[in-house]
């Protein structure tokens, strides 16, 4: 599958896909989108890259290992949940900042939670793909 055309196309497609995934993530609160589908699109970008260049290159491109993405995502989601608790409300209560933030308009723990979902979903799919697509002996760690 590793053809010159695919490799070249991927080079230009990937930044767009990542941007689109972030766009989906942050618009999700008001328009169709959200962390889950955003994560899927981000993962799709990594997969495309993997198909073109192989697992080893994809790992290099990603910089962080996917299981760290999974762990970070879970942690971020948990922090989002606990923040409400620390603020003296029920666990998982949404806390919003009053001042508007550029680009994403509003920021609060639900957005943070969505970021956690995004990271985890990306990490999860990428982890599975790396595992399945990896033909090297001894694993991808």
């Amino acid at each position: 599958m590793s053809t010159l055309i695919l490799r070249t196309a991927v080079k230009y497609l990937i930044p767009g896909m990542f941007l689109f995934s972030l766009f989906l993530l942050f618009r999700g609160h008001n328009e169709p989108g959200g962390g889950f589908v955003g994560g899927l699109v981000a993962a799709a970008a990594v997969i495309l890259y993997t198909l073109a260049n192989g697992v080893e290159m994809a790992e290099k491109m990603l910089h962080v290992s996917p299981h760290k993405l999974i762990a970070t995502g879970l942690l971020v989601a948990l922090v989002a949940g606990i923040t409400g608790w620390i603020a003296g409300k029920e666990f998982m209560t949404g806390i919003w900042l009053d001042m508007p933030i550029p680009v994403i308009w509003k920021f609060g723990t639900p957005v943070l939670f969505d970021i956690g979902v995004y990271l985890l979903v990306t990490g999860m799919v990428v982890k599975v793909i790396f595992t399945l697509a990896d033909t090297r002996e001894g694993g991808n760690q």
């Binding site: 609160h29 328009e31 962390g35 949940g81 998982m92 949404g94």
Partner: peptide, 15 residues
């Protein structure tokens, strides 16, 4: 604080 009900359910009401 969101107009997308599905997403608000996912990340807030049913987080």
């Amino acid at each position: 604080k969101g107009r997308n009900i599905v997403n608000v359910i996912l990340v807030d009401f049913r987080a």
